[in-house]
């Protein structure tokens, strides 16, 4: 900068306006160059994400048992989800990765994974076990490619993220339809399992200030029960043992598993 200025000053002695013009042209040029470079990087990133998604998304070679814990907040911003996964190799010997999709009600509630991620851990076996997340899309639901280094035939891992606004309808209207789409298997897998998830447990933690929770229209084979109550609130559990059986025969679409949740206010009669 100083050198350029000195050179410009030498060239245009006694003409500061000329020097300034040169300086500005150079700076603007540089800004445009940097903007172009950023755009190129952005396109490259788009391509990388798209490759990862298209390559890994549709053909998961693992199976998964999962416990999903919803912390229903007093306020919108307190809604949180914790998922405890036991992921095992289904095709092949070890699990390297997991195609993760966070809960989201869709367009009204779009956020990015790295913004809401609170915690991602893996159970230690030998030490130095790593688990990392690469965000894949900024589409409605946060998606990420979770990787396990080193891979193992069975990996225990946990993810906790904020999910602001997920239970807004429950808080505001007193009722909300809960919906979950079991992650499908690849199109090449024509018989046997329908989803990579074998068994799932949903846990709903409701603060005492909101009241008590009731569930309606549960899917076949699912049970709803109150697991615990203390001064802070109550915990409810829904267990589904066999997702594939619930989804029916292959070659049919995977319909969301859904039911209706209602809050009974504590002070209501």
């Amino acid at each position: 900068m100083t050198l350029a200025f000195q050179a410009g000053k030498a060239l245009h002695k006694g003409n500061p306006a000329g020097v300034m013009a040169i300086e500005h042209a150079e700076l603007l040029e540089r800004i445009y160059m940097l903007t172009d470079r950023l755009e190129i990087h952005e396109l490259e990133l788009q391509n990388i994400r798209s490759t990862l998604e298209a390559a890994f998304g549709p053909a998961p070679p693992y199976s998964d048992d999962v416990k999903i814990i919803f912390d229903i907040g007093d306020r919108s911003v307190d809604d949180q989800v914790a998922e405890e996964h036991v992921t095992a190799a289904h095709h092949g010997n070890v699990v390297h990765w997991y195609a993760f999709e966070g809960f989201s009600r869709g367009r009204d509630q779009a956020f990015q994974f790295r913004e809401v991620l609170v915690h991602l851990t893996r159970a230690r076996e030998v030490g130095h076990e790593r688990v990392t997340a690469v965000e894949l899309t900024t589409a409605a639901a946060p998606r990420a490619l979770i990787t396990f280094t080193p891979p193992h035939e069975r990996v225990l891992w946990e993810v906790r993220y904020r999910c602001p606004g997920y239970w807004d309808k429950l808080r505001q209207a007193g009722g909300q339809r809960f919906e979950w789409v079991p992650p499908p298997v690849g199109p090449g897998e024509t018989k046997g399992r329908r989803s990579v998830v074998r068994a799932v447990t949903f846990v709903f933690r409701v603060p005492a200030t909101l009241g008590t929770l009731e569930a309606f229209d549960l899917p076949r084979g699912a049970s709803f029960r109150r697991a615990a109550t203390d001064a802070h609130g109550s915990t409810y559990r829904i267990d589904i043992r066999d997702i594939s059986a619930l989804l029916g025969p292959p070659a049919t679409a995977i319909d969301p598993i859904r039911w209706y949740l209602e809050l009974k206010s504590a002070d209501a009669p």
């Binding site: 396109l43 788009q46 391509n47 994400r49 798209s50 490759t51 998604e53 298209a54 390559a55 998304g57 009600r105 869709g106 367009r107 899309t137 589409a139 409605a140």
Partner: peptide
């Protein structure tokens, strides 16, 4: 852009 560059892409549409 990804489809043109690498021939792979995912298209999502939400009708919920």
């Amino acid at each position: 852009n990804p489809l043109r560059c690498i021939g792979l892409d995912v298209f999502r549409y939400d009708v919920r």
